[in-house]
Structure formats: C-alpha cells, structure tokens
C-alpha cells in the first residue's frame, strides 16, 4: 500500500509539472499582450517609456525560458508571483477564492449524494414501476439541462417570483452567516441537480446488478431479511462504482462551477480564472491552473486509494 501510494504521488507530481509547463508556453503563444492591455485604455497611444517600465515591472522583458525558470523557482519556494489585475500575490488571490469554490462544490456534492443515492436505490428496488420511470425521466432531464439554464430557472422561481432567496451574490460568513448560507442554496442546488441525476442513474444500475448477482440468493437462504440484505450487503458492493463516478465527476463538478459562479456572481476560483484569462494575467492564470490540476489529479488519486479500501482485489 505504501509503495502504491508513493508511486501514485510521484506520477501526480510529474503530471502537475507537465500541465503547468504546457499552460505556461500556451499562454505565451496566445495573442493579447497584457502590457498593452493595461496601458491602452482610452484611445491614447501607448508611450514606449510607459510600456517598457511596465514590462520590466512585470518581468515580461526577460526571455521566455528565463521567465519559465523564474516561475519554476517561485513554484518550489511557494511564490506564484503577483497578479496584474488583483495587484496582490497570486497565492493570496487563490487563498481567498478556492475555499469558496470548494464550499460550493462540497455543498453540491452533499446535496447530490443525499438525493441521488437513496433515490437510485429506490428506483432499482422498484424497478419498472412508475416511481422508477419518474425518477429516471427526471434524471435524464437533469443530465441534459445546462447549468446556466437551470440556474436561471431557479432564480426566476425562487428569487424573482417567490422572493424566497436572494438571486445572487456572496456574503462572507464572518459578516453574516445567515445571508451567507441563503446565498449558497440556489447555486449549490443548480450544480447538484445535474450531478444527482448521474448519481441516481449510476446507483440504480449498480444496485440492479447487485440485486441480480449470485451472492444474493444464499443470503436469503440463510434467512436474512430483505432490508438487511439490501442495506448491509448490497450497498457496500454497489458503492464501488458510485465512488468511481463521484471521483470522475469531481472534475465535471469543478467545471460546472465556472458557469454557476458566473450566473450567481459567486466569487470563486472559476470566475477568478475567467477574469485572469480575459486580462491576460499570466501569473494568475498559471496559479489557478496549477491549483485546478492539482485538485483534478489528487481526486483521481484518492479514488484509486478508496478503491483499494472498498475492494480488496484492487489492493
């Protein structure tokens, strides 16, 4: 297990390095000059002296390989540089935004699991009934409706018409905890809708598989009750594919926050990345991509490890 863990960690580090290197050079090839962008605001021509001063200040006057080396050195000393648009260290910007995205993603995941798994089990147990039809029907809808459509529908119903919840925004928890959580509900439900749908379908099909598998009949033969068989023996087996789907979908979950954060004005890392790209804020883009790729790779790793725990054969 320790060796397995060490091997996976090493691969993960190499993966992160490859991703950030690609991002670094892709950025340099992307059209759009951050210095021009910061200076050419209102029609006036850009003064060469001002251009040079700013390029130097941002370290963009150095050759690309040198810039890359500087960034790598920074990476290993925990310094990701200064953001051009936030005008503070990239680490601080990400430190502010990442917890908000994780909070949103976590809340969505929680809602999706709480809704998706029990309903999936119910659909499987009542296979072919109207309950099953209804649930699978809604879940196809959930999987196919884009986040921004469903988000605006929720806003329309709960904020604009019923006036139950705020339409958007973010209030730091230390300022007002109640308002903080009220603003979390709609975006979290928006992401959870699609996510719980795929969770429901996955749970349903793996539960069906478990129901028809061979180890079930002897359990009944030993006189165990139906509920006990379902809950104790089948759920554990069924959880393996479900954990996989959660892990695989975490990436999609983070990606889903991009649109959701925009729709609900939720200031997380996704909106930060979008802002960074549209301003060609190189250090900030690199920083965000670094963190996001770490999240991706680490979740995959954790899924691998969880696999080992749930299924001894995978160890």
């Amino acid at each position: 297990m320790a060796r397995f863990f060490a091997k996976r960690t090493l691969t993960a580090i190499i993966q992160v390095l490859i991703v950030t290197t690609i991002v670094f050079f892709a950025l340099k090839m992307m059209p759009g000059d951050p210095v021009l962008l910061m200076l050419s605001r209102d029609g006036s021509s850009v003064d060469p002296a001002a251009y040079e001063a700013l390029a130097k200040q941002l370290g963009l006057d150095k050759p690309i390989l040198r810039q890359y080396r500087n960034w790598l050195t920074g990476l290993f000393t925990g310094d990701l540089g200064m953001s051009y648009t936030e005008r503070r260290p990239v680490m601080d910007a990400i430190g502010d935004r990442l917890p908000r995205t994780l909070e949103l993603a976590g809340a969505s995941l929680l809602i999706a699991v709480v809704i998706g798994i029990p309903l999936g089990i119910a659909a499987a147990v009542k296979r072919g009934s109207w309950v099953d039809l209804l649930l699978t029907g809604i879940s196809s809808l959930g999987q196919s409706v884009p986040v921004y459509v469903f988000g605006y529908i929720l806003v329309l119903i709960f904020a604009l018409n019923m006036r139950l919840l705020p339409s958007s925004g973010y209030v730091p928890i230390h300022r007002n905890p109640v308002e903080h959580f009220r603003r979390l509900i709609l975006p979290a439900c928006t992401i959870a809708f699609g996510f719980s749908a795929s969770m429901l379908r996955m749970t349903r099909s793996s539960m069906l598989e478990a129901l028809s598998s061979e180890f079930v009949r002897p359990l009944y033969a030993r006189g165990l009750s139906k509920a006990r068989v379902h809950m104790k023996h089948m759920v554990r087996n069924m959880l393996i594919p479900v954990v996989t789907i959660i892990g695989l979908q975490l990436g999609a979950l983070i990606a889903g926050t991009v649109l959701c954060e925009a729709v609900f004005n939720w200031p997380g890392i996704a909106t930060l990345l979008v802002k960074a790209i549209s301003n060609r804020d190189y250090p900030l883009i690199q920083g965000c991509m670094l963190i996001l790729s770490i999240i991706f790779i680490v979740t995959n790793m954790v899924v691998d490890l969880l696999y080992g725990l749930l299924d001894p054969r995978a160890r």
Binding site: L160, P166, S167, S168, A262, N265, K275
Partner: peptide, 18 residues
C-alpha cells in the same frame, strides 16, 4: 460598488433588491 460581471445576473440583482 458590487461587482456583477454577468449582465443577466446584474439585472436580476436589481429586480430582487440586492
């Protein structure tokens, strides 16, 4: 001054009194 980058979201924020 609250930053509302998305236009529809900004419009809704006015309608709901945010």
């Amino acid at each position: 001054f609250i930053f509302y980058l998305d236009e529809t979201t900004r419009n809704n924020a006015l309608l709901t009194g945010e």
